[in-house]
């Protein structure tokens, strides 16, 4: 379960060490509250929801922290677009990576969270992503369409 939580939290743009902190808080929250989760089948969904909330809260807290220049710079240079990252991908995945990089933050986040969730809860997602619940489905479709366009363009180059 931890690897799935990793991707969900990283979707919110946190650096690797902040992502670890959020995941740890998620697990500790689970330990404290697990008896209140009546249905064992619901555990995975509880963990994912809690990780998303933790990641969203961490983003808000980080915004309030008003980072100094160096930190702002580091945040503006995401490690996920490094040459090392692309080197581990095969051609098709590298093409996909390049296409994802052209999407805006909101699309990237939404697609990554949805990709790692079996049955996305649109209502909860709408709160965490600051989107009206009715717009998640259309936004998802629009983001996938933009991704397809970027893939096609990339293929023509």
């Amino acid at each position: 379960m931890t690897p799935v939580l990793w991707h969900v939290v990283r979707a919110y743009g946190h650096d690797r060490s902040s992502a670890e902190d959020v995941i740890q808080a998620t697990w500790l929250g689970f330990v404290r509250l697990h008896r209140t989760i009546a249905d064992p089948q619901a555990v995975a969904s509880w963990l994912i929801t809690s990780a998303r909330r933790g990641a969203a809260a961490h983003t808000k807290a980080a915004r309030r922290a008003a980072p100094v220049e160096d930190e702002a710079l580091a945040a503006a240079l995401p490690d996920e677009e490094s040459a090392e990252t692309v080197a581990v991908l095969d051609d098709e995945a590298a093409r996909l990576w390049g296409a994802v990089a052209t999407l805006d933050d909101r699309c990237r986040r939404l697609l990554r969270v949805i990709a790692f969730m079996d049955r996305p809860d649109y209502h909860a997602l709408s709160q965490d992503l600051d989107m009206p619940v009715g717009s998640i489905g259309p936004t998802r479709a629009r983001c996938l369409a933009k991704l397809r366009t970027a893939l096609t363009r990339g293929g023509e180059r």
Partner: peptide
């Protein structure tokens, strides 16, 4: 299919730290 490909891509491009679990 596209979401499956994305999931696979993110798994490989940004794996969790080895000792995370």
């Amino acid at each position: 299919q596209l979401l499956d490909a994305l999931r696979d891509m993110w798994r490989r491009a940004d794996p969790p730290p080895p000792g995370l679990t």
